[in-house]
Simulated assay, not measured.
Amino acid sequence: MTQNVLVLGGTRFFGRHLVEKLLEAGHSVTIATRGNTEDPFGEQVNRIKVDRTDETALSVAVQGKNWDVVYDNICYTADEARAAIRVFTGKVGHYVLTSTLAVYGVGSADRKEEEVDTTALEIAPSPVGQVSYGEGKIQAEAVFFREAPFPAAAARFPIVLGPNDYTKRLHFHVERIKNGVSFVMPNTEARICFIHEEEAADFLKWLGETGQSGAFNAASDGKPKLRELFAMIDRETGGSTIVLPEGPEGEASPFGIEDDWAMDTTRAAKAGFVFRRLDDWMPELIEHLARG
Rank of each mutant, 00 (worst) to 15 (best):
C75T: 10
R146N: 14
F144T: 09
P163D: 01
V243Y: 13
G64S: 11
S99G: 04
A32Q: 14
M263E: 02
V128R: 15
A148H: 13
G15S: 03
Y166D: 06
L226I: 12
K168M: 07
F255C: 01
N73Y: 08
E20H: 15
I138R: 15
V92Y: 09
T237P: 00
R47C: 05
E43W: 11
G247A: 05
R191I: 02
M185N: 14
L161F: 13
G292S: 05
A201P: 07
T2Q: 15
R47N: 08
T167C: 02
T30Y: 10
G136I: 05
I31M: 06
F194W: 14
A218D: 07
Q63V: 10
N179G: 07
S132C: 02
E209A: 13
N164A: 04
E122P: 04
N46D: 13
V19Y: 12
G9P: 08
E122T: 15
I31T: 06
E113Q: 08
F275S: 00
N46P: 02
V45Q: 14
H94W: 09
G15E: 00
E147W: 05
A252P: 04
D221E: 14
A231Y: 05
V7P: 06
R111P: 00
L229I: 13
Q3I: 06
Y95N: 04
E135N: 09
A200Q: 14
A148C: 01
T100F: 00
F157D: 01
L161Q: 07
K112D: 00
A61R: 09
P224S: 01
R12D: 06
I74A: 12
Q139V: 00
E135Y: 12
A201K: 14
L23K: 13
V5D: 00
